[in-house]
Simulated assay, not measured.
Amino acid sequence: MKQFRQFETFIALRYIIKWLPISFLVGVLAGTASAALLSSLEWATDWRESHRWIIYLLPLGGFLSGWIYHQFGQDVEAGNNLLLEEIHNPKDIIPFRMAPLVLLGTDLTHLFGGSAGREGTALQMGTSLADQLTKILHFQGANRRILLTAGISAGFASVFGTPLAGTVFGLEVLSIGKINYDALFPSLIAAIAGNQVTLLFGLHHAANQQSPSIRTIIIWGLISVIIVGVIFSVNAFFIWEKG
């Protein structure tokens, strides 16, 4: 029994030594990318607010973004779907160009007054940058999936300032319905590092003010949410069955 415990300790120590620096580097890359995203979005939003006329050029902005992807990003235009495919069925390394392209596309959308979430952008940047380490480390199979999961966690955590939520989010993407604990430590370290790097750039995440009325749980409101959730679930099930 004592020898078995010593063996477990050796395996755990080896695992930590292996993944700690890798996860930290993934966090640095994702955090830096998220810092660039947040600062550029802030600039784009301020410029649009002071030049409202640019909203009339929104179709031009959409065309420009589409043209850029058509010319330079046909292999990454699948976006988040490409990330999921590579995690569950690894084939090729995610091209580095995904990071600057999705950053540019999101900035253009916000600049012209369009609607685009920052979470998808952060995930794509974090994961594509993390996957570049695959070339250096020669990762395959489970190791590469863990690396990509850490990139997702770091991207989510650094753009929203939520390390724990980013960790859980990355683990859920890796394996829906169950958690692969092999990716827990790398995802947590990458998420914490990514968030701290973003903060080091002097960027602060938006604070969500909660309305006092939301804090009070209304029974009918809770029942309504449950009913709507069941309806959506049944609808999604039938769509999935037909698909």
Rank of each mutant, 00 (worst) to 15 (best):
V228T: 13
L147V: 06
V76E: 00
I218R: 11
A183G: 08
L29M: 10
S34V: 05
S233F: 12
Q3W: 14
Q74K: 10
A165M: 09
I227V: 15
W67H: 04
Q71L: 11
I226N: 15
F4H: 11
L148D: 00
Q196R: 14
T121P: 04
F63R: 05
L137P: 12
L20V: 15
M1Y: 07
F185L: 12
A165H: 05
I68G: 02
L147M: 10
Q71F: 12
V173E: 01
A35M: 06
P163I: 08
L64R: 03
N143M: 11
L148Y: 02
Y181L: 05
L174P: 02
L137I: 13
K2F: 07
A44L: 11
W240L: 14
P212I: 06
P186L: 07
F10T: 09
T198W: 01
E86P: 06
T45G: 04
I176L: 14
V76M: 04
H88G: 08
L82P: 00
S65E: 01
K242F: 15
F238G: 12
A157N: 02
V168S: 13
F10D: 15
I17V: 07
E241R: 07
G66S: 09
L29D: 00
G66A: 10
F112H: 01
T134D: 15
L123G: 01
G66W: 04
G126Q: 03
P21H: 15
F160I: 06
Q132S: 12
I189W: 01
L203Q: 08
S40P: 04
F156W: 14
I136D: 05
Q132T: 12
G120S: 14
L111D: 00
I94H: 00
I239T: 11
Y56C: 05
A35G: 07
L184A: 12
I68W: 02
A207V: 08
I176S: 12
P59A: 06
G27Y: 01
G73A: 12
L184R: 06
I11V: 11
T149Y: 03
L123N: 01
E77T: 08
A36E: 04
D92Y: 12
H138L: 08
L84K: 07
H88T: 14
L25D: 03
I93M: 09
D107P: 01
N208V: 08
S213Q: 14
L101C: 04
I218P: 06
I192H: 02
G177E: 13
W43P: 05
D131E: 12
L104E: 03
V102P: 01
W240F: 08
T149A: 13
A150E: 02
I231P: 08
W47D: 05
G126A: 10
F24S: 06
L84P: 02
S65R: 03
L184F: 07
E172F: 06
R144N: 06
R145I: 06
E119C: 08
G120Q: 08
G113N: 10
N195C: 05
A130S: 13
G194F: 00
L101Q: 00
G66N: 07
Q71K: 13
K91I: 06
F72M: 09
L58E: 03
N143D: 14
R14W: 08
T198A: 04
L29V: 04
E77Y: 06
A150S: 14
